[in-house]
Computed example of a mutant assay.
Amino acid sequence: MRSILVVNGPNLNMLGVREPEVYGSETLADIESRLSELALELDLQLEFVQSNYEGDLITKIHEAYATKDGIVINPGAFTHYSYALRDALSSVALPAVEVHLSNIYKREEFRHHSVTAPVVLGQISGLGSYGYELALMALVRYFEEKGE
């Protein structure tokens, strides 16, 4: 069974409350519950982490080295400026998929650039919480194609 770390950055603990017109009405717990159900179907084990602190997320990514098979990450605002988070993802060299609930390219100009995108397999943006499900399926497909 493959093990995937699901990382959520700052303010994602406020889903369902924070700007529902942008991020929807689902809570992070709702998303995690649905992902857990999908993980059973995909024969995956998930570990969830959410933090508003960059260092906590970096530590969890470092701990994933040699213990996890892949990462799904919604870096939140860290997407746009956290070179430390980018370097953590790069250093563990695990296949990762970046997820954004909203379409970051249709929002404010500062949200259009992702410093983490160059070190992940791909990015899913603008499909709401379904993006997390697609990210898990993308990782499964990646493992299949690599023959792992």
Rank of each mutant, 00 (worst) to 15 (best):
I124Q: 12
L121F: 08
G131K: 02
L40D: 11
L89D: 03
F143D: 00
H100S: 08
A84Y: 02
A84W: 01
F48N: 06
E41H: 13
G9F: 00
P10N: 07
M137Q: 15
E63H: 14
S82Q: 04
T67C: 12
E148K: 12
N52G: 05
E145D: 11
A88F: 05
I4D: 04
G55Y: 10
S82L: 07
Y130N: 13
R86W: 01
L89V: 09
L38I: 09
R18V: 02
K60H: 08
P75D: 08
N11G: 05
G126A: 06
E98P: 05
Y23C: 11
K106C: 11
L85S: 03
E98H: 08
S36E: 15
A64F: 00
E41N: 15
F110Q: 12
T116W: 00
I73N: 01
E41V: 13
K146E: 12
A93E: 14
E148V: 14
S51E: 06
N8C: 07
Y53I: 13
H113D: 10
V92W: 07
V72I: 15
D87E: 11
R111Q: 14
E54M: 10
E19W: 09
A66R: 13
G16P: 04
R111A: 10
S3V: 10
L28V: 06
S114G: 04
D56W: 05
P20Y: 08
L121A: 06
P20M: 10
I124S: 10
R34S: 15
K146G: 03
P10D: 00
F143A: 02
S82G: 08
S3W: 07
L12R: 01
L35M: 15
H62R: 12
V115F: 11
R111K: 13
T116D: 00
P118T: 12
D87K: 09
Y130Q: 14
L12K: 04
G131A: 09
E133L: 10
G55L: 12
S36G: 15
F143P: 04
F78M: 14
E63W: 10
F110E: 12
E145H: 07
M137A: 12
A29S: 14
L46E: 11
T67P: 01
F110G: 09
T67G: 06
S91Q: 13
T79A: 01
L38Y: 02
P75Y: 06
H100Y: 09
L35C: 11
E32Y: 10
I58M: 11
S51M: 07
F78K: 02
N8E: 09
G9N: 00
L121Q: 07
E47L: 09
N13A: 08
V7Y: 01
Y81D: 03
R2T: 08
P75W: 00
V119N: 05
I104P: 01
I61Q: 02
V49R: 10
N52K: 02
L40F: 03
Y23W: 11
K60F: 01
T27E: 06
L101H: 06
L101F: 08
S3C: 14
A66E: 15
V6W: 07
E145A: 09
P75F: 03
A64E: 03
D30G: 11
M1Q: 09
H112W: 11
V119S: 06
F110M: 10
Y23L: 13
G122M: 03
D56C: 05
Q45K: 14
S114H: 03
S25A: 13
R107T: 13
A66H: 13
K68P: 01
D69I: 08
G9H: 00
G55E: 15
F48W: 11
V7L: 04
V49Y: 02
I4P: 00
V119L: 03
A64Q: 07
S36Y: 09
